[in-house]
Design a protein around this nucleic acid. Structure first.
Lengths: 209, 209
DNA sequence: TAGATTGTTAATCGATTAACAATC
DNA sequence: TAGATTGTTAATCGATTAACAATC
């Protein structure tokens, strides 16, 4: 595939913006308006679409319904995506109950933790022992995992997940995990995101003094 | 400033990797090893450093202690960064108690919510009424906010924050907020991050079939 | 038809990487 | 000294943007 991560993220943003346009009653949209909505350029919108063979009508723009359907299909949103979560601590528990995932067709079908006190197989999203994890993943054909364990446990947990057949991991542990051919890693480091913001706020403040 | 966001994120990663090297007992390090640790190239490490006037010793590499100190200074980590959080729901509450922030010198000094049931001024991190927010921010000179309100409230909450003097916002609401000259926005959309992962996992799966 | 928007090619821009002289 | 690594310049690479012919 020729497409890069930023491009796919833009597809998600287009999709979200289009849903809002649709609820406002719009039927069709021009690349210019969609660009405005996501903070890009119309050329980029058309370029992104053309990379995926999405075409509109010259002079008529794009049909919103068809466009959303096409984007959903590309982004794998035609079926509910089953994921598991490992590490039911503060952040992990919040993610288990995070409504937006459900709205977006992402279903956390089980969570796993090493702490016996956290186990609760009867919860709406069952919290299970970590030694049941591999079997559960295999049995349910899960390919995506959310990792929210302490950083000291991150690498070994990742190894377990990969061995069980997980192909993609969203990692919240504050340590950079590296992807392999077997498994893609998407690192989300919240402290780094804040540090970044702090840096640019400080730079801007100094620049204007 | 000439530096881009990715470059600053790399500085954070270098810093984190160096702290690990230091705990392992290393005193100095070559660009090559640091690059390996963060998954980059040695040329990029040296380039990034030279952009910030960081220099090492030809043939001797970089002194880890001095390097960490310099990076901490650039990233504003010499003093505790005070931030406020708005929206003490599932995710917001988890972030309030998220240890990694504390470890990284980021202190959430107060949270705000519109729901009276959530108010708790006596908590370790006080949860206050949202109508006290502007005064609190002004009084404490806070410049950074974490936004974890529902998407329907995101834009109006942002407006309040900017009016109160906030200069940078880490936004978790699943709607793309746009920065202005007054205030920088860093959008973290967890569903989009997962969608992205799902896309690449699916593409890889199809490619190997 | 005249006018406006798409789809795509070519130009630009910026970031990453390679290469190598300087030098410890 | 000989060898290895930095610091920086130049080359490469890829992504974004501009431009415009096609056409509805």
């Amino acid at each position: 595939m020729i497409n890069n991560k930023n491009c796919i993220i833009r597809l998600s943003r287009y999709k979200n913006a289009l849903v809002r346009f649709k609820t406002l009653g719009f039927i069709k949209i021009f690349s210019e308006y969609l660009a405005d909505a996501v903070g890009g350029t119309s050329a980029q919108v058309r370029k992104d679409f053309s990379l995926f063979g999405i075409s509109g009508n010259k002079r008529g723009g794009y049909q919103i319904d068809a466009l959303i359907a096409k984007l959903n299909s590309i982004l794998g949103k035609n079926e509910v995506q089953k994921v598991v979560l490992v590490g039911a601590g503060q952040l992990g528990s919040a993610l288990v109950r995070y409504n937006t995932f459900e709205k977006e067709g992402i279903k956390i079908i089980a969570a796993f933790d090493i702490d016996p006190a956290k186990i609760n197989p009867k919860a709406p999203t069952p919290i299970l022992q970590i030694d049941e994890m591999a079997r559960f993943i295999l049995k349910n054909g899960v390919r995506i995992a959310i990792l929210s364990v302490p950083d000291s446990a991150a690498q070994q947990t990742l190894d377990m997940l990969v061995k069980a057949g997980i192909k993609g991991v969203l990692n919240f542990a504050p340590i950079e995990l590296k992807g392999t051919n077997d498994c893609i890693i998407n690192n989300v480091n919240l402290a780094v995101e804040l540090e970044n913001l702090i840096y640019f706020v400080n730079v801007t403040a100094k620049a204007t003094v």
